[in-house]
Structure formats: structure tokens, C-alpha cells
């Protein structure tokens, strides 16, 4: 549900929801140390989140004409080429038949994912796991280099990419997982834009901070942030307490 909500955010896609889910699954797990070593829970969380954004991403695409995910941008482009205008008018014209086509299409695609995933996945995953590292490692390295270069046609970006990779590895060795840092880098501009807008609106009323606790939606978000922040602490404290009680009971 949460990742469907992430998909609704314009510009946020499967990568953000995948990282959010992975991070939360790791924080909520009883065995977080196994994450990053092929833990099924981590894979399930990020992949389920990736799929959940597909439906959510259609919301800003069809309602606002802003693609929620990269595939939605292609769908939006195809609609515009065909002369279909997205927005409220799309829901009114023809009784919303175009919108319901998307809804039913997504529903059928979701149902078909199970048999197709079971059939193809069995062979595809096997070939990926057994793919020789001597080909996989240089191929991935080459794609990161050409991908970093192609963004602004600059070799400096490739150097920055390598430097950030080194920094990520060092932080990982120090015990800081890279996924929350990557998440912060991706969500940072979106959060800054929202924060500055809220600050300016609040500033017009004379109290810039009041806008952040002005309605039930913002209060809910603030409560969820604090719950997410303190959940691992409370869970850890409860776990230690339970272990101590069990040790006393056994003793």
C-alpha cells in the first residue's frame, strides 16, 4: 500500500519505492544482518514495491499528465501521439472508457504475472545466478561508466560516480548501509521543494513552522516519520527485554 502511494508521487518510481521497502524490511526484520547477502525478505520487499508502483504511477499520469514512473512517461507519450488528452476530461469522455481500459489491463497483467513469472522465472533466474562473473562484472562496470557519461556527456560525472562508489564502500565498511543514503539523495530534491513551498506558505501567515502541523494529513505524516524513526529502538528494547526475561527464566 505504501509503495503504491510512492508510485502516486510524480517523478518517484520503482527505484525509490524499492529502496524504501528494502530499508523498512531491514529495519523491521529480526535478522537485519542477513540483508545484503541474498536474504529472501529483502528481495521480496524491493520487488513487491517495484510492482506496486506500476498502478500508483498511473494516477498522476492519467489525472495530472505527469508521469509517475519511467514506463508511464512512454505511455503518456503514446497517448499524446494518438491525440488523447490526459486529465479530468479523459475521465469524462466516453464514460471514462479509456481509464477503465487501463484499470482492467493492469488487473489482467497482474493476474498473468503469476503463471508467466513461475514459468519464465524458473529458467531466467537460474541463468542469471549461473552467469559467469568474468562477463557480468565488466559488463556492469561498463554500463555504469557509459550511463554516468551519457547524462551530461561529461567524463567528470564518471569520476564522480567512481568516487561516490568508493565512499559508499567505505561507509558500508564502517557499518552505514548505502540504501538510506541513496534514498536521501533521490528524495532530497523532492523533499526540499515541498519544504520550501510549505515554508513560504507558512511564512505568509507569520509562522512558517505552523503549516507543517496545520492539518490531519501533515500530522499523520509527522507521526509516521517519528514511528518509523523510533520503531527499531522500541523493537530492539523489547527484544532485549524478552531475551533477558527468557535468560532469567531458564536460569
Amino acid at each position: 500500500m505504501g509503495d503504491c502511494g510512492v508510485g502516486i508521487l510524480p517523478g518517484a518510481g520503482g527505484s525509490i519505492s524499492g529502496l524504501v521497502s528494502y530499508s523498512e524490511a531491514r529495519r523491521a526484520s529480526k535478522t537485519p544482518e542477513r540483508f545484503g547477502q541474498g536474504e529472501p525478505q529483502g528481495l521480496q520487499a524491493s520487488e513487491a514495491a517495484n510492482n506496486a508502483t506500476v498502478g500508483g504511477g498511473m494516477v498522476p499520469t492519467l489525472v495530472l499528465g505527469i508521469p509517475g514512473t519511467p514506463p508511464d512517461a512512454i505511455i503518456l507519450g503514446a497517448l499524446l501521439v494518438q491525440g488523447v488528452q490526459t486529465g479530468p476530461a479523459m475521465f469524462e469522455s466516453g464514460g471514462g472508457s479509456m481509464v477503465f481500459t487501463f484499470i482492467y489491463g493492469l488487473f489482467i497483467a497482474t493476474l498473468l504475472m503469476l503463471p508467466i513469472g513461475l514459468l519464465i522465472g524458473r529458467y531466467a533466474f537460474k541463468s542469471i545466478v549461473t552467469f559467469p562473473k568474468a562477463v557480468l562484472v565488466p559488463a556492469v562496470a561498463f554500463m555504469t561508466m557509459i550511463g554516468a557519461f551519457a547524462i551530461r556527456n561529461s567524463l567528470s560525472d564518471v569520476v564522480i560516480m567512481i568516487a561516490l562508489g568508493i565512499m559508499g564502500w567505505v561507509l558500508d565498511r564502517l557499518g552505514f548501509k548505502p540504501s538510506p543514503i541513496v534514498l536521501g539523495l533521490i528524495l532530497g530534491p523532492i523533499a526540499e521543494q515541498g519544504f520550501v513551498q510549505g515554508w513560504m506558505i507558512g511564512g505568509a501567515t507569520g509562522d512558517p513552522l505552523s503549516i507543517f502541523l496545520a492539518g490531519p494529513l501533515t500530522i499523520t505524516i509527522v507521526v509516521l516519520i517519528f514511528a518509523s524513526l523510533f520503531f527499531p529502538l522500541v523493537a530492539g528494547w523489547l527484544r532485549r527485554r524478552r531475551n533477558t526475561e527468557e535468560a532469567c527464566h531458564d536460569g
Binding site: A134, V137, P138, A139, A141, F142, I146, L155
Partner: peptide, 24 residues
């Protein structure tokens, strides 16, 4: 890449990494 171009440099990097990542 400044001197030998992107493609040749990438090919050399590929071959070097292939040799480094060869466990078999």
C-alpha cells in the same frame, strides 16, 4: 578516455576487469 577515446578505453577496462573477475 581523453587520449584513446571512450570505446577503446572501455574495451581495455572490460578486458582488465574480466581478467580480475575470473574465478574459473
Amino acid at each position: 578516455m581523453h587520449w584513446i577515446g571512450f570505446t577503446i578505453a572501455a574495451l581495455l577496462v572490460y578486458l582488465a576487469l574480466m581478467a580480475l573477475a575470473m574465478y574459473e
